[in-house]
């Protein structure tokens, strides 16, 4: 299964991915219109600081999103059965029609990548832009810090060096 991988050295913390993600999950699919939508669309990728190296100029950051885990705790905690693995793609899908907004999935996600979408009364997370074909965040990244690839193709050994 493909996942999104963030190359920390290349992440500028510009949050372009967050904007692209929100737009991709908006009604209008266009930034200029999405910003005035009600409710406002919600991004499912989250740029977080992982601390400065020696000087504040070298703040390191990472864009975090759902890992579609091998052992998805969110699916185990979901009381409605709305979170499950798509047998074909291997992705963890979150059926919006079955979500009862109890936040049990948020309670157990170790990566903190499921968020409340209070306006729509449901929890949301990365779906790899299922209805779009490919993740908008990856396309939007100006430094190509985001990769969408199989684990075998991802330079994980280099990423964690």
């Amino acid at each position: 299964m493909k996942r999104v991988y963030c190359i920390i050295e290349k992440c500028l913390s510009c949050r372009s991915c967050e904007i692209a993600c929100a737009v991709a999950h908006s009604e209008s699919k266009a930034l200029a219109d999405a910003v005035v939508e009600h409710p406002l669309p919600k991004h499912r990728i989250h740029v977080e600081s992982i601390g400065a190296e020696e000087t504040p100029q070298t703040i390191r950051s990472i864009a975090l999103q759902c890992r579609h885990c091998e052992d998805p705790l969110c699916a185990q905690a979901c009381i409605s059965g709305g979170i499950s693995r798509n047998r074909e793609t291997g992705e963890i899908i979150n059926d919006p029609d079955r979500c009862v907004a109890c936040w049990s999935c948020i309670m157990v996600c170790p990566f903190g990548v499921i968020v409340r979408y209070e306006d729509c009364h449901r929890a949301v997370k990365c779906d790899h832009c299922a209805d779009r074909g490919s993740p908008a965040c990856v396309e939007s990244c100006p430094t190509h810090a985001l990769l969408f690839c199989e684990a075998e193709e991802a330079p994980i050994d280099n990423l964690v060096k």
């Binding site: 996942r3 975090l64 890992r67 885990c69 091998e70 998805p72 705790l73 684990a151 964690v160």
Partner: peptide, 11 residues
Amino acid sequence: VLEKYYRGQST
């Protein structure tokens, strides 16, 4: 920690 995250290992 980072490696577990990249590999989607929740536990």
